[in-house]
Every structure is written in structure tokens, then in C-alpha cells.
Simulated scan of single mutants.
Amino acid sequence: MAEGNLTTVVEFILLGFSNLPNFQSFLFCIFLIIYMSILIGNGLIILLTRVSRVLHTPMYFFLGNFSFLEICYTSVTLPNMLTNLWTHERNISFLACAIQLCFLLLLGGTECLLLAVMAYDRYMAICKPLYYPIIMNHKVCVQLVVGSWTTGIPVMIGQTYQIFSLPFCDSNELNHVFCDIPPLLKLACSDTSVVQLSVYVVAMLFGMIPFILIIRSYVEIIITILKLPSNAGKQKAFSTCSSHLIVVVLFFGSAIITYSRPKSKNSGGTGKMLSLFYTIVTPMFNPMIYSLRNKDVIDALKKILPK
């Protein structure tokens, strides 16, 4: 019976902003501008970390990879959203929805791990400065990045398979802007308690544990900074960490709230806004947060602009 139900659902309908029919063109322009700013801003960060020798350090190596991740992350959802707003066709096939969710989970998990790696890098630079060049060598940095990208692949593929193995028999309308776990679980017409439990376990592994490690790193960092004798040293140390900490709060804050109640019946509008926040708003502000608050990035930008 479950197999029969699965075969009947050949596509989903992403309701998105269908409740705002008079604002479709306006929303298309807004999201297009946001997407272009994400591509240009993060692309510029990648370029700067490649061509500027001043930025050939572990911190900017991770930042360049993080900017590339942000481009990939937003490209999973934004092009499809723009297409839906432009054509007013909100259909997405069963397979395309599964692929979109799989990449969304995979890249989201990678972002959590990479943010934890960046916090560890700052911890080593500030709390263990004498060991920093030895421990955070190029080989270790590459291994940390590769580990962040590949660790979640089997887990996220399994999570996606588990969700799309559920029978969807009542409706195929997703009250969301892209395929995500909370709206999909609402459409399932069978018991989802096991799936919800696995969602919480995966969220703990790839969300809460990295978040706790980040908090622990920054506790140690703050304690070390407060012990510095000069105010100039304290200010410089805080400036190198504040940008990363802002991104952590924006991303984890909205993501934790969204996935803390995966089958809430009263979070349709709120869920859309929160999901847009951690999938679109944070990647958009990422280049501005890191460039406006970082003297090295600004200096590198000034050197490359005349060329």
C-alpha cells in the first residue's frame, strides 16, 4: 500500500509565495538581486583569497572554501525559486525534490562542520599561537576541509531516502519555498515518529555538536583575549573572531529554530522566513561581514580593484 501511494505522487507543488499573486514580479527582482549579490560577493572573496599573498593563511583558506560553499548552498534553492516566480509554475518532480533536499542537507551539514573548523582555527591562533604554524599547516587545513565536505554524504543520502520512502497520499502541496524536511513530514500519511527521531539525531550530530564545539572554542578565546596586556592586542584579536561569530549566530540561530519542531502545524509562514534566513540572508551578508570588519580583506580589495 505504501508503494502504491509513493507511485501516485510523481510531483510536488511548491506553494511558495502564491498567496501574494500581485508581488510575484517584485519578489523575482528582489531574489534575483540577492542571488547576484551572493555570487558576486562570495566570488570576490574566493578571488581575493587566491590572488592576494597576504591572505594565504589558514583563516582565509577556510574563508575561501566557506564562500564557495555559500554559492553552492544558495544555488540549490534560489534558481528554482526564481524560475517558479517567473513562470508561475510551481511543480517539482518527486526525484528533483529528493535531489534538492539531499544537497540542501549535505551542504547544510558541511556548513556546520566548516564553521566549527573555522572556530578551531581561531582557537589555535589565539590560544596556542606558538603551535599554530605547526598544527595548522596546509596539509591539515586541506584534510579538515575535505572532511567537512565528505563526512555527511552517506548520512544525508540515508536521511533523504528515509524521508522519501514515506507514503504521501493526502496532498502533494508543499507550503514552502523549496523541498525541506518539515513541510514534507506534514504531507506524510503514516507514522513519522521514527523519521523525526532520526532527524533529531542527525541534527545533533551535524548541528548541535559543532555548535557546542564552537561555543567552547569561543569561551576559551574570550578568556585568553581578556588576559592580553594591551588594548590594541585585545581589539585585534576580537576583530578576527567577531565576523565568524556573527555568521555562526545568524546561521545556527535560524536553523536550530526551524528544525527544532519538524512537524509543527503552525509554523508555515514562520518556517518560510526562517529557512530563507539561513539559506539566503546569511550567504548574502557573509562577504559584507567578513570584508567590512577585516582590514586585510579591505587592503587586498583596494589592491585588486584598480587592476
Rank of each mutant, 00 (worst) to 15 (best):
V199T: 13
K303W: 04
N65G: 07
N22S: 15
I34D: 07
L39H: 05
I181Y: 05
Q159M: 09
S217I: 02
L205S: 14
I289V: 00
L114Y: 09
Y131G: 14
N137Y: 00
F66T: 00
L14Q: 01
A188S: 09
V155K: 12
L292F: 04
F168S: 06
Y278G: 05
I99H: 09
D299I: 00
C241P: 03
R90A: 10
F23D: 11
K234H: 10
L85F: 02
K303P: 01
C169K: 13
A125Q: 02
G207L: 06
G152I: 00
R216G: 03
V219D: 08
F94A: 06
Y120S: 10
A119V: 02
L113R: 03
N286H: 15
A237Y: 06
C169R: 13
Q100K: 04
G207M: 06
K186H: 15
L305I: 03
P283Q: 02
P167G: 13
L6A: 03
L144N: 13
S93W: 07
Q235W: 15
S264A: 14
M204A: 15
L107M: 05
G43E: 00
I214P: 00
Y120K: 02
K234T: 13
I99R: 11
D299T: 06
T49I: 07
M208N: 10
T83Y: 12
L48W: 01
Q162R: 12
G64H: 01
Y278N: 13
T282Q: 07
F62V: 11
S260A: 08
S75W: 07
N286D: 09
P210S: 04
I280V: 14
A188C: 11
T57N: 01
L205G: 03
L114M: 09
G109Y: 10
F66G: 11
N175W: 11
L184C: 07
I304D: 01
G269C: 12
L305E: 06
P167Q: 10
I134M: 09
F94P: 04
S75Y: 07
N137T: 05
L106Q: 10
M81V: 13
E70S: 14
A237N: 05
D180H: 15
T192W: 08
L6K: 14
Y259I: 09
L185N: 11
L115Y: 03
T240F: 00
S267A: 14
E89L: 05
I246K: 00
Y200S: 11
P167C: 13
L226A: 02
L82P: 02
P79V: 02
Y132N: 01
P58R: 01
A203N: 12
V177G: 05
I221A: 13
L184Y: 08
C72Q: 11
I222H: 11
I222Y: 15
M284K: 01
I135N: 07
M204Y: 12
E70H: 15
C112S: 12
R293L: 06
N5G: 11
L250Q: 06
S260D: 13
H244A: 00
I280P: 05
L174N: 04
